[in-house]
């Protein structure tokens, strides 16, 4: 089976070139002194100390993490039953459902958010509620599709066998479906939580400008201020904190699989 690993060589080359190399440059920017768009080789840690010396930046990061986390939780709560029910449909209808879920993703996110702005104006909602409606809306299809993919085509025989053996629906769910869907949930969390941390357009448009988020901050420093060095540092700090928290989730996954 080792020979199969060779299949990923083209991809390894690809990520070395297009993901790792650009990230090394971002790292170099984060570790050097500013020079409007130019890379200078005056190494410094001041971009990092600037971040940690000002409580504002940490607060912004934690607000972003909180919003992303809650968005992810809502997406699981709403998306899991949907994926489960989808999986019990006849196969062709399942495909149709997946397509129905993806079609709206092809309409520009900004347009849909403007539409939500118009719709929600008719309701008296807290700005936080509006933000979560918009965020969950944007990310829900990813979660549903990920979970559904993991449990779709799951051995129907397995379920039938469980029924035949006298297990009720609830027991079958707990013992068979749920464990099998865990990798799907993890994938869903990755696809929702990671981009949600750095997204800011939806909270900005629906929250009435009440939200300063980390993605916004990074973009401001990259574009408005032209300070690529500090912008790079913020994005690296964010990435490290997220990776640490994802490791924790992975541990849970492993425990769930082994347990």
């Amino acid at each position: 089976m080792k020979s199969f690993f060779r299949m990923s060589y083209p991809y390894l080359l690809w990520i070395a070139l297009f993901i790792v190399a650009p990230m090394i440059m971002i790292l170099l920017y984060a570790l050097t002194r500013s020079g409007n768009g130019l890379l200078t080789f005056q190494f410094t840690l001041e971009n990092f100390t600037k971040f940690f010396n000002d409580a504002t930046f940490m607060r912004v990061l934690f607000t972003s993490l909180r919003i992303a986390l809650l968005t992810t939780v809502f997406c699981i709560l709403i998306g899991y039953p949907a994926a489960l029910f989808m999986a019990s449909l006849p196969e062709r209808k399942q495909t149709t459902m997946v397509l129905l879920l993806t079609l709206p993703m092809w309409i520009n996110m900004l347009l849909k958010t403007y539409a939500w702005r118009g719709i929600l104006m008719n309701f008296d909602l807290e700005s936080e509620a509006r933000v979560f409606i918009g965020m969950v809306y944007d990310f829900l299809p990813y979660m549903i599709i990920q979970i559904h993919t993991a449990i779709a085509k799951m051995d129907r025989d397995l379920l039938t066998a469980a029924y035949d053996l006298g297990a009720n629906r609830w027991k079958t769910f707990l013992k068979v479906t749920l464990p099998l869907s865990v990798p799907g949930i993890i994938s869903g969390i990755t696809l929702v939580f990671l981009p949600a941390v750095s997204s800011f357009v939806i909270p900005k448009l629906l929250g009435g400008g009440d939200y300063v988020l980390i993605g916004n901050l990074i973009e401001i420093y990259f574009l408005n201020a032209g300070d690529w060095n500090f912008g790079s540092a913020i994005s690296l700090i964010m990435a490290l904190i997220i990776i640490a928290s994802m490791w924790a989730t992975k541990k849970l996954d492993r425990n769930a699989q082994e347990g």
Binding site: S34, N36, V212, L217, N224, A225, G226, D227
Partner: peptide, 16 residues
């Protein structure tokens, strides 16, 4: 750029 960066930091604090 240094002044622009300063504007950004202060403006973020106003909005927060």
């Amino acid at each position: 750029e240094s002044l622009r960066s300063q504007y950004s930091s202060m403006w973020i604090k106003v909005k927060l």
